[in-house]
């Protein structure tokens, strides 16, 4: 961070900057300053709380400041998240385990829907494809609400379930998986896609179209030619709607790809950051016989399996956030120190 700030200072001093670059660097610089500011406030508050403790101030008073500290941590988290955003796109697909994996994908979909309800977020299903037994082959949904992406991004990765599947008559415990991918939603204005780079195809019956047939589904497939990203959307909604939805998803995937490329070019990604992008990483296990949920990234186990599946995800996510903050703080506090040195 400290180096980054210096790097930006240098960049800002260059005479050949375009207004666009100037704006971007300027914004990044302002953000770093804000992070420094909040970090300093956190340090001050911490010191103040210690002081109160030493002076034997009553706990109620201390709690007040601890709450303030929590608030500051939250704010810091929001700022540190490079993709702090209120809009997320979530995709869930079954992995290994056949129908049981599809039922597990359904359970995860339920979990996030209920979590979104608790958070007061708005959830809109874009695509849902079923299996015969009520499982899910694929679900894609948009979530909108305060810091929805900043929070849900911790859910990206492979989720694993261990239980006796309803489809299993022998009573044996199976292990199945489902994959969750969470992307920030990118507004049209925030990413440039040239119309000529898109190949938009619709799929209809061979032979006559138009008035000659009346199909229940409309299907749209959009290919982004320069990158080869393909997004399909096929359901009972209108073709226009499916095209809009596919474009929303395409924008997010393209942005993600560009971001990953940029990060690789500019600097090593912070090692401490949890689980975004690593879609093949096994992040969590839901073990029914032991009534536990274990998050492997932070080695944290909760014995509230049912509550968690009912959408009480704050417990685990707050642990993940704390972990993230701790790691990020180390870097940021480095800057704090250097500022004081000046």
């Amino acid at each position: 961070m400290k180096e980054k700030k210096k790097e930006i200072e240098k960049l800002l001093a260059r005479p050949d900057l375009t207004p666009e670059q100037m704006k971007n660097y300027g914004m990044e610089y302002a953000k770093i300053e804000e992070i420094e500011n909040i970090t300093n406030r956190i340090k001050e508050t911490q010191e103040f709380i210690e002081l109160l403790r030493e002076e034997g101030e009553n706990e109620l008073e201390i709690e007040k400041y601890e709450k303030e500290l929590d608030q500051l941590y939250q704010e810091l988290l929001f700022l540190l998240s490079p993709e702090a955003s209120d809009k997320a796109i979530v995709e869930i697909r079954p992995g290994t385990g056949g129908e049981e994996a599809a039922l597990f994908a359904r359970d995860l979909f339920r979990m996030y829907t209920r979590y979104a309800e608790r958070k007061g977020w708005n959830l809109e299903v874009a695509e849902i494809h079923e299996t015969d037994l009520g499982g899910i082959r694929e679900v894609v949904f948009f979530v909108k609400g305060k810091n929805a992406y900043g929070i849900l991004k911790y859910e990206s990765g492979v989720h694993r379930v261990q239980r006796v599947p309803v489809t299993e008559s022998g009573g044996r415990i199976h292990t199945s998986t489902a994959t969750v991918a969470v992307l920030p939603e990118i507004e049209e204005k925030d990413i440039e896609i040239r119309p000529e780079d898109l190949k938009i195809e619709t799929f209809r019956a061979s032979g006559h179209g138009g008035q000659y047939v009346n199909k229940t589904e409309s299907a749209v497939r959009i290919t982004h030619l320069p990158t080869g990203i393909v997004v399909s959307c096929q359901n009972e909604r209108s073709q226009y709607q499916n095209k809009q939805t596919a474009l929303r998803i395409l924008r997010a995937r393209l942005y993600q790809l560009q971001k990953e490329q940029k990060e690789r070019e500019i600097s090593q990604k912070r090692k401490s950051q949890i689980g975004t992008g690593e879609r093949s990483e096994k992040i969590r296990t839901y073990n029914f016989p032991q009534n536990r949920v274990t998050d492997h990234r932070i080695n944290y186990t909760s014995y509230r399996l049912q509550e968690i599946l009912d959408g009480d995800l704050d417990e685990i996510i707050s642990k993940l956030i704390e972990h993230d903050i701790e790691n990020n703080l180390e870097e940021v506090l480095g800057i704090g120190a250097s500022v004081e040195e000046k």
Partner: peptide, 14 residues
């Protein structure tokens, strides 16, 4: 009973 993943009512509807 760990077979809580599908309820009876649900099995019926599907």
């Amino acid at each position: 009973d760990t077979r809580k993943n599908v309820s009876g009512a649900e099995r019926k509807i599907w």
